[in-house]
Write a protein that binds this DNA or RNA. Structure first.
Lengths: 252, 252
DNA sequence: CGCATAGTTGACAGCACTCAAATGAGGTGG
DNA sequence: CCACCTCATTTGAGTGCTGTCAACTATGCG
C-alpha cells in the first residue's frame, strides 16, 4: 500500500468509526489487565486510563494520524496493531515502529505540537483516545504522573538505542531472529500459546524497520526455518526451539 | 585503550580531581552562555545549574562512571568530551553516544538505579556534578521542570530514532558524512570557525558508533576528501563545501 | 474464479568486512 | 630536543553478504 492511497483514505469519515461512549469504562474493558502494563512501571500511569474520552475502530490500511498534523491525542491500542512510518525525501516509506495491543502511542512527541510520523492500522484495530490538553494540565498538578511518564520516555530512549545497535551491528538473519523474538515477547502476555503467533505486518515493513531488503528478510526467515528454529507459514510464526534461537542470535 | 585498563584506572583517586568549590558559581562560569542550551528548551532546565555541587577534572582515558554502578549524579560537561559505551557479550566496546562541552549526561537513565554504560573522557575534561537525589525531590515540587525534562527526553527518543534510520539505511560514506555534519552542528556554538574543528574521538569509536569497521571509516573519509568536500589531517576536520556535503549526503 | 498484491527464489554485482602490511602520529625517556 | 617506541590510521587484496533485478509462486480479496 503506498502512502498516496493512505492520504486519500484518511478523508473518508468511515475510516475512523466511533464506538458508543457507554462502553468506555476501563474497569469493564476486556484488556484492562494488560493494557498499558507492558511499558508502564505500574501505578500512576494507569491514571491515563481515566482520561480516555473516545474509542474508535480503525480499519486496516487506514491512517490514525499523519506526519505534520497537529498532535491532539495519545492513543492506547485496545485491539490490533499500528505501524508508524515516515517518508524519505524520495517519498519511500520508512518504518520506525510497530505498536501492539495494550501499548500507548503518541506520547513520544509530547514535546512538539505535531506528529512526526504517519500511523496506519496493520489490521482492523480499536484505539482509545486520550486528549493531551487535559493531560498536560494533569501533568502540572500530578508530579508523580509526570515522573512516571519521564521514566517511560527514558525507557524508550534505551529501547531505541538497543535497536540502533542491533541494526547497525548484526547481520540480516540475526536482525530477523531478534525481531521475531521481540515480537514473541511483546505478544506473550496476551497470547495463549507463546510459541505460536501471527505477525500483523508485511515482509516489506519488517525489512524497512530492520534496515534490510524484503528479499533478505525472506531469505533470513528461510534460513532460520532450514535450521529448524522456527516454522513459518505466511504470517504465522511458530517458535520450534525458542531457547536455541535466543542462544544463537539474541542481541544484548 | 581497552576496558580492562579503564577499570583499573578508575580506582586511582587521581583520575577524578576535585576543583575548589569556591569557583562553582554558574554565573561566573566561562561557558554559562551555551551550557545546557543545546538541548534545553531554555527556561526551567537552567534550574539544574543551581544544583551543581562539585566540579571535577577528569583526565583523558579515565572513567566518569561504569555500567552497573549506582547512579547518583548527572553531569554537565564544562570542558572536553565524553564517550559512552557498553560491552558486547564478547567484551568488545560498543559506542552508544558522544557528549560534548555544554551537554548533560546521566539523565538518560533517570528511570533506573544504575548506569547502563561506561563513560570515559576522550580528552582531559571537566565536569559539573548534579546530585540526583535532590533533583528527584525538586521534580516533585516543580512540575514545570519535570515537564521540561520530559521534553528533553522525548527529544532524545527522536534523535535516537534518527540515528537508527541513518545507520540502518545509508551506506558507509553517507554515515560518516552525517556524523561529520552532526559534529559540526553541535560544535557550532562554541567554535570560532564553524568549518574547522577537531574530532576528539578515534576512528575506532566512530566506526563502532556508526556500525561500520574502522577501515571503512578511513576509506569513507578518504572518499569525501577525494571529492573535495572535506579536508582531513588526522583528527582535524575542515569542511570545504558544507552545503554540497549536506546536499549530497544529509539524511532526513 | 480471477485478478492484484505479497512473498519466494535465483543470478549477478558491488560494497563492506577481514586479514595483512605499511605509514603516520603522539608520547616518553634519554 | 631528538630518537624511539607504541598505537592509530591508512592502504591493499581477496572474500562473502546483501542489494538489485527478474521471474515465479502463493495469498487474499472482490
Amino acid at each position: 500500500m503506498n502512502s498516496i492511497t493512505n492520504l486519500n483514505t484518511i478523508s473518508h469519515e468511515t475510516a475512523l468509526t466511533d464506538v458508543s461512549p457507554t462502553c468506555l469504562n476501563c474497569q469493564n474493558c476486556s484488556i484492562k489487565d494488560y493494557c498499558l502494563t507492558p511499558e508502564s512501571v505500574g501505578g500512576q500511569l494507569s491514571e491515563l486510563k481515566h482520561s480516555v474520552k473516545k474509542r474508535r475502530i480503525i480499519h486496516k490500511g487506514h491512517l490514525l494520524f499523519l506526519a505534520g498534523q497537529p498532535r491532539r491525542n495519545a492513543y492506547v491500542i485496545r485491539k490490533g496493531s499500528i505501524k508508524c512510518y515516515d517518508l524519505d525525501p524520495s517519498g519511500k516509506e520508512r518504518v520506525g515502529d510497530f505498536h501492539l495491543t495494550g501499548e500507548v502511542i503518541g506520547l513520544e512527541d509530547l514535546d512538539t505540537s505535531t506528529h512526526h510520523c504517519f500511523a496506519v492500522a496493520l489490521e482492523d484495530s480499536e484505539i482509545c483516545e486520550i486528549p493531551l490538553l487535559p493531560l498536560q494540565n494533569l501533568l502540572l498538578s500530578r508530579a508523580a504522573l509526570c515522573r512516571e511518564l519521564l521514566s517511560l520516555t527514558t525507557c524508550r530512549v534505551r529501547q531505541q538505542r538497543h535497536l540502533t545497535k542491533l541494526v547497525s551491528q548484526s547481520e540480516a538473519t540475526a536482525r530477523v531472529a531478534n525481531f521475531i523474538l521481540g515480537m514473541a515477547q511483546r505478544l506473550r502476555l496476551r497470547c495463549p500459546d507463546q510459541s505460536r503467533f501471527r505477525l500483523s505486518m508485511a515482509r516489506n515493513d519488517i525489512a524497512s524497520y530492520l534496515g534490510i531488503q524484503m528479499e533478505t528478510v525472506s531469505r533470513s526467515i528461510g534460513n532460520l526455518q532450514k535450521q529448524g528454529l522456527i516454522n513459518v507459514r505466511s504470517k504465522q510464526i511458530e517458535l520450534c526451539k525458542p531457547e536455541q534461537l535466543a542462544l544463537k542470535y539474541a542481541f544484548h
